[in-house]
Design a protein around this nucleic acid. Structure first.
Lengths: 356, 356
DNA sequence: GTCGGCGATGCATACGTATGCAGTCGTTTT
DNA sequence: AAAACGACTGCATACGTATGCATCGCCGAC
């Protein structure tokens, strides 16, 4: 389309192509007077540096690849939380002058190396819930690969990770419920080995119980894949098994929404009968009925940290896996348990609602 | 990382770099025996074509830019529907051998030209609900820009569009309700000039009424920005104004979810008292309670058509704006109105539920 | 036996930029 | 006055590939 080259700009400005290149890149070598003239002309002619040539010469692509794990094969939807992450990462990269190359795939081949050896991207950010633990472990081995994964930070695991402090998130969510007088708190979520982040949230849940000296009942654990449906079905099972819960901590907002629907379909009211806490803080979640108490993962920060970590890695700087602190957002889906009820510490049905 | 070049492969294979290049690109000029040898060696050495060099020489980037309109400034969330679209577009592009460059921005500058003149992308796909109509009009003027927009197809509008046949979608949704005996059907959605797609859905709603000879009451129109909250608030207004509806057609699934919540909070049951139909068919929507009757936009097809249209445009082929047919998905949130009720044609509260 | 033709390959070059090095010119140092 | 220096600028080249053109060997045709 625009076939203006640096050479033509040079001619118009009465300088050499080298000077044009230097002026545009802000080299201190070029006189400010000259630079201004060059920039003005380049602007007038609507000149844009040819990225291909620039990349070829500089051997840098100024591009990061974003791989989103597509588990549509697994039947579960892509969590809307990821849209938020994708947007945050893309914006953070843009701030650093980097483009984002997007790809939805099953993590299976060695794209990471491919992206770099083909000079398409300088590094890769991987996004997705579990199901790829083995693959990540393999990636970790490639210590020359520039790859940062959003996910669980596990000691001793090879590779570089940025993730939410899921243990702490699970802890504060559960502590909030314990502090509110609840003693029979269910955990709904996928705690298979495939999803270390959910295992971590579960670990936080257990830790809070231990600190509180509260009992943990296996009856209160319900597996659920990370979708709305998963939450719905898990909650149904809990009810059917007579778990006698007064609260539920869900590994995912979607799980929480599903659980709330299940409760409602059985005429169990949230938060009057059962308090529910989610995880993620999806944008729309604040407007549900009742508005969901949840653990917020700050996607904007996460995007920045992911990009910065990856760029450090590319630069060769030493990099450490980082945990981001989650934040408890208390809304209407959780409430203080009545004293008496807390004392007798049981019963799924509490009709008297003092707190709205 | 991988510093293997075509020249080195050539040496190993005992041929020239030209032959390596041709072999890799599948040129018919090269002997099949030679090709095999070259491919085998290239594979062994894990050779990858340097994209920058290839792009520079061929003057093609094999990349499409995907611009997602970020109206986070407007306060409304990015609809999860777009995540589905983004994934579909990315996969469709991948099938054609194209990469996707992602960007979240306010549509304001002339990126389209920039992407092309910098050789970053061969074309641009724009994604987003309203708020950018003026901008699109401006883009349409740049007839040399390779740009396809997902959105309303309006006669006489400059530019190239691919969109859902929103009028027909609105029509079949409304007809479904009319056929089911409903006569007081609310429309919930943003029908401002900014969002032609919603105006089109509204137009379909009106057309169905006209064909049916059914009356349209202004009391039944409720504006709502395209979020869950918007739907909630609009439904609240309808109830408060005593619109006397027995059904609601919502411009968006999110609107529908919000509306259902609002109804429920007023003890109006869906579908027993009010039938609700949405639009989009969000992946998670099938598992809500009640499962939402909605108008499906097939994102996979949309992705393919968008990419193919854009590539045609790049090739210089004549291109026409295309409308994709939506499909009515009947689930549990809509039901047949009882005969008598239909006869008296009114009343927001119908307690007797014959159909589950 | 010469020539045209065809299949296959190599040669040479251009794509547009970034950058090491050398050059220029004016100013300062000795 | 000569030398050294500093601030700019231009020259030349390389990045790795794709491709037009020339070349080469071989076979069939006349």
């Amino acid at each position: 389309m625009n076939r203006v080259t640096a050479g033509e700009i040079a001619e118009l400005a009465g300088v050499s192509q080298s000077t044009v290149s230097r002026a545009l890149r802000g080299s201190p070598l070029v006189n400010s007077k000259t630079r201004e003239r060059v920039l003005r002309i380049a602007n007038e002619k609507n000149y844009k540096v040819n990225t291909s040539a620039s990349r070829l010469r500089s051997r840098k692509s100024r591009t990061l690849a974003l791989l989103v794990h597509d588990d549509s094969a697994m039947g579960s939807d892509i969590n809307p939380f990821f849209l938020s992450m994708i947007a945050a990462i893309t914006k953070a990269a843009a701030e650093k002058g980097y483009d984002i190359l997007l790809s939805f795939q099953q993590f299976s081949d060695n794209w990471i190396a491919d992206y770099e050896s083909s000079n398409k991207a300088e590094g890769v950010i991987m996004l997705g819930y579990g199901g790829y633990t083995d693959y990540i472990r393999k990636i970790g081995m490639l210590d020359n690969a520039h790859c940062v994964t959003w996910g669980p930070v596990i000691d001793g695991q090879p590779g570089h990770f940025v993730g939410c402090d899921n243990i702490h998130g699970g802890y504060i969510a559960t502590k909030h419920l314990l502090d509110s007088g609840h003693r029979r708190i269910a955990f709904i979520g996928d705690i298979s080995d495939d999803c270390p982040e959910f295992q971590a949230r579960y670990a936080g849940y257990r830790r809070a119980h231990e600190e509180f000296g509260a009992d943990l009942s296996p009856l209160l654990q319900a597996r659920a894949n990370p979708s709305e449906r998963g939450g719905y079905e898990a909650a149904e099972r809990l009810i059917d098994q007579g778990a006698g819960l007064t609260a539920a901590f869900c590994a995912t907002d979607l799980n929480a929404i599903g659980a709330i629907r299940a409760f409602r379909s059985r005429n169990i009211l949230v938060p009057a009968d059962v308090s529910v806490v989610g995880f993620d803080d999806l944008p729309s979640i604040a407007y549900t009925t009742p508005a969901l108490t949840t653990v917020r993962q700050d996607t904007a920060t996460a995007g920045h940290v992911l990009v910065e970590t990856l760029l450090d890695l590319v630069r060769g700087t030493d990099v450490i896996s980082r945990l981001l602190p989650p934040e408890l957002i208390v809304r209407q889906s959780s409430r203080q348990l009545r004293r008496e009820a807390a004392a007798e510490s049981s019963g799924p049905r509490l009709s008297d609602a003092r707190t709205a």
